[in-house]
């Protein structure tokens, strides 16, 4: 009986009441929403760009003796530089250069020993001027990333980078042959990175040659294959 009375009381109250449902809108002082944004950047490869040919259009007089005669051969023009496009994000690599089949193109005979042909590296880039204030930039290399950790193991003529350029044109005046220059008849490591960095970049390298000319070479024209390898 008690239960019956309570039910009717509740029912009665409901019946007497209307139902008011308030749906309240929001008038916020500040309302924020977030939007995610992303981009995916993929690593790439190493690409070595070398000139199709390097010419030394130079004629010299036959020397009287071979004891200390030499001349300089340098591909001064911009399109004869070696370029390295590195998208490896710090991947290791070796770049070597070898001179092969050096002969007199008329007789076919090697005119002189490969020991007489030597090579060195130097800055040779007018695209990205050398930042001489950054000591991390390895000598002989002009790269956009100062922390690329690239070794240039060859003897380097770039002892004073500022003197190599005149009016933004490569001007090589400090090349002096010395005992550090290498025999190019065997592969020579010119540029190398082992590991230890995560950078990418574009690097360029100039090369200069000098040849010791022995007597008896008058009238000869020397040709050879200069091979660059990226490993």
């Amino acid at each position: 009986m008690k239960s019956f009375g309570n039910k009717n009381l509740v029912l009665g109250l409901l019946l007497f009441s209307g139902i008011n449902l308030f749906i309240c809108g929001t008038v916020l002082a500040q309302n924020t929403k977030d939007q995610a944004v992303s981009v995916n950047i993929n690593g790439g490869n190493l690409l070595l760009l070398v000139p199709q040919s390097i010419t030394f259009p130079r004629t010299i007089l036959e020397p009287d003796n071979s004891s200390d005669t030499y001349f300089r051969l340098s591909p001064y023009v911009e399109d004869q530089k070696i370029r390295m496009q590195d998208l490896s994000n710090g991947g290791p690599f070796n770049v070597t250069v070898t001179l092969e089949n050096l002969t007199d193109h008329v007789s076919g005979d090697p005119p002189f020993s490969y020991q007489n042909v030597e090579i060195c590296t130097l800055h040779m880039d007018t695209i990205n001027p050398i930042d001489t204030s950054n000591l991390n930039n390895p000598p002989g290399l002009n790269g956009v990333d100062a922390n690329s950790l690239i070794n240039i193991p060859m003897p380097n003529a770039d002892t004073n980078a500022k003197t190599i350029y005149k009016n933004n044109t490569p001007y090589f005046q400090s090349f002096v042959p010395d005992s550090g220059h290498l025999d190019i008849s065997q592969p020579i490591l010119v540029m190398q990175r082992v590991s230890g960095t995560t950078s990418s970049g574009e690097y360029s390298l100039g090369m200069a040659f000098h040849v010791t000319i022995p007597p008896g070479t008058a009238g000869k024209t020397f040709t050879g294959n200069l091979t660059f390898s990226l490993l």
């Binding site: 977030d34 992303s38 956009v144």
Partner: peptide, 21 residues
């Protein structure tokens, strides 16, 4: 703009839209 030689990876950020009276 992606700067030159940006290291590889998936780059993300969040932008917030704010509406005020």
């Amino acid at each position: 703009y992606i700067p030159p030689f940006t290291a590889p990876g998936v780059y993300t950020t969040t932008m917030t839209w704010t509406l005020t009276d």
